[in-house]
Amino acid sequence: MGGENKPELIVNGKRLDGRMPDELRPIRIMTNVIKNADGSAYIEWGDNKIICGVYGPKEALPKHTGNPERAVVKCRYQMAPFSSLEDHGRTGPNRRAHEISKVTKEVFENAILLEQFPGNAIEIYIEVLQSDGGTRAAGITCAAVALATSGIPMRDVPFAVSVGKVGNTLILDMNKIEDNYSDADVPICISPRTGEILLLQMDGNITREEFSTIVAMIKKAGEKIGKIQRDALKAPYEAISERYKR
């Protein structure tokens, strides 16, 4: 948190990239971007570029990784070594990536109707090609769409976004520089149908009241993010029906 040479993150009520405190970065989602995968999606969220592929349900191998009562979810989040504006990252998942993979897996264990596929595995691969803060949230939002395109039955299409704190201002959807110098970072994933929290992480400092405000901000942002997810899912079918009209 913080550090030397901290830049002014909010000037005249506006953020460094010109956004208002409760404004999302532009989000664009495309589906069916990987031919071999059973489901896939690509998201551009601000300067983040993330591609996600889903395989399954397929037999859980090795056998002992399977569960006779329900499907297991295997998830790997990874950042490409060239993804950051800073140093060359190391190849392969680090400790941070392992943790994100685990909490992401838990989100989709909730969202997918696993009981329908005992002994099977559903694999979710999230590859961060370019990163600019908020990649775990963007990755989850993208993976939810990829899963939906695969036809794997789900309770809901979850979304995630983070809220940060700069001084006394809560800001939605932090980019990398905001993340580096903020006083708190609270990524949350919500199942919009029930409003339940599927992922919650936080570090920094916030009060109980601020936490309530943060959840409300995230739910509100979810209306926009959810629409982008649904539009992305509908787009290929709309293209077909357009062609049919003509």
Binding site: E196, L198, L200, Q201, D203, I206, V215
Partner: peptide, 23 residues
């Protein structure tokens, strides 16, 4: 005075009201 870190785990979920009470 302040919340410093939080982490949710597991398949289940919490509502915002439940979290407020937990805090």
């Amino acid at each position: 005075n302040l919340i410093r870190a939080m982490q949710k785990g597991g398949r289940g979920a919490f509502t915002a009201e439940e979290m407020d009470r937990i805090i």
